[in-house]
Amino acid sequence: MRAPSSELPIQFHGVTVTAGGVTILDDIALTLASGPPTVLIGPNGSGKSTLLRLAMGLLAPSRGRVTWGGLELVPPLKRAIVFQRPAMLRRSAAANLRFALRAAGIPHAEHARRIAELLELVGLHALADRAARRLSGGEQQRLALARALARDPAVLFLDEPTASLDPIATKAVEDIIRTVSERNIKVVMATHDLGEARRLAGEIIMLHRGRIVETGAAASFLDAPQTAEARAFLAGELLI
């Protein structure tokens, strides 16, 4: 039941977010279209997570508009997000997926098959009956990915999906992201790991202090950044 591509493109029209007098995002104009993964980079506090929440529709802009396929206020039926620290429901891994399938309105008859597929995809089929909160960090991150994919999304937002994972777990997660992207699901992810950006990104958007500093195809951005901030960030300097 894939909806007609109503989700994409996601467009930001002069979007500003303020909270408690602090400007978190400032006059963002942006289009997220189908294609290879879009990766948001920038130092901590640059506004990446807030931008993902806006695009997901969890947050309303203080000023400006966000549109999905040209429309405002599109319910997140075909969007899914994996938070930086996903909350595991106090149930088994399989039950976490079943919950997401039910929330997404997937017919009950399909649940068993979909759960098996999703667990297979993220390599957790052996742990189906394990309590989700007793899984390791990497396993939880993979389960969160499967849970997001249970919604059969057209767009998948990932907020620092490999932060605090060891290299093996990171590779497992990145492999899943690649598979997802190959299935024509638009991936939009935030990371502050430049290596990860290099490995996964088709397009890069760099944020700094709530503003978009530079956007571009991954290769050209990483090899020939145009702005001083991007050059400093890529050189590993502290951006203040």
Partner: peptide, 26 residues
């Protein structure tokens, strides 16, 4: 703890309450 996840799953008020009660059962 659950707010973001349940909101992202587009769960209605009843679904949220049921999920929270069930997960808080212990």
């Amino acid at each position: 703890e659950y707010r973001d996840e349940l909101t992202a799953m587009n769960l209605g008020p009843l679904g949220r309450v049921m999920a929270l009660i069930w997960d808080a059962r212990f």
